[in-house]
Design a protein around this nucleic acid. Structure first.
Lengths: 155, 155
DNA sequence: TTATATGCAAACGCTTTGCATCACG
DNA sequence: CGTGATGCAAAGCGTTTGCATATAA
């Protein structure tokens, strides 16, 4: 995601008001490369003196999530984060632990695995949540070359 | 889980002190049928006038989690909960949305799916988190018989 | 014009921490 | 005994809410 257009469009398409603050949040979200927390956006807004309040940012993020252009995920740390994503089809995310980049992956056999789980356990699976954490191709390469930006994920 | 023994044992085996408050938390956890929140335990402790402080309960739950006899999961709502679980082998949980029961499932082909994801995307997957939500056999049966405890998941 | 959205600040719920005291081993 | 564990209360976060005001449609 590079443009805030999809986010802005989603608001209009759903019949919500296209307000200044919402455009601002859409911009800030679009400017992110990968996942981000609500606080990232709040700080960015404050640093740029955009005059958008915390509450409004939370409300906008909620709205985007409801419109399926954003998804709320749980990091291994237990923290909540958001990732931009295409609406429509079912998918999951891989989050890069080095640079924070995110990519979407489709089902890839998970459906079959769940079928099997149901058959073997007698449980009915309604929803599932799969989150993958690892390294994007760039960061993998960087590691292999021994350049190693950061050992893990501290600032 | 019906006995607090495994929890208590885990403490001793790991060389931590087997204190009164920790035994209490172990009891309260063992008394739970499925998942529970830290708050559930805190309230239970208070209701029974067991004189165990909040902080101690959080510390005990952390300890159990560290010892792999408890696992912290994220509910679809985004809330944090704990589920009792066997240590050792890698596994996932299915949480019953009706009664809160939990069962463990082994890998079941997920490994292969991840292999494939890596091959197709070029990303390196380090860890993953899969949480399944649905209905246990009992609650499934109950629904089929039309007794229908709750229509969906409202109170 | 009028319902919707905003900003602020206060309230909230969950979790952690500082610190003096307590008790397991 | 001595160190690790506890309880309390206060602090810390992230997030939500009430309400008067501003604004998109």
């Amino acid at each position: 995601m590079t443009s805030s257009q999809p986010l802005v469009d989603a608001i209009g398409d759903a019949g919500y008001r296209l307000t200044g603050p919402r455009r601002v949040v859409a911009e800030l979200v679009a400017a992110r490369a990968g996942h981000f927390t609500a606080n990232d956006i709040i700080e960015a807004a404050r640093a740029l003196h955009l005059g958008v309040g915390r509450a409004t940012i939370f409300r906008a993020l909620d709205l985007f999530t409801e419109l399926d252009v954003l998804e709320r995920i749980d990091l291994p740390s237990g923290d909540h984060a958001y990732v931009p994503c295409e609406p429509q089809r079912h998918h999951h995310h891989i989050v890069c632990e080095d640079c924070g980049a995110v990519t979407e992956v489709e089902d890839l056999g998970l459906g079959a695995a769940i079928e099997q789980i149901q058959r073997r356990t007698g449980w009915q699976v309604e929803t599932h949540r799969l989150e993958l954490f690892g390294r994007c191709p760039d960061c993998t390469r960087r590691r292999l070359r021994g350049i190693d930006v950061t050992a893990s994920d501290e600032t």
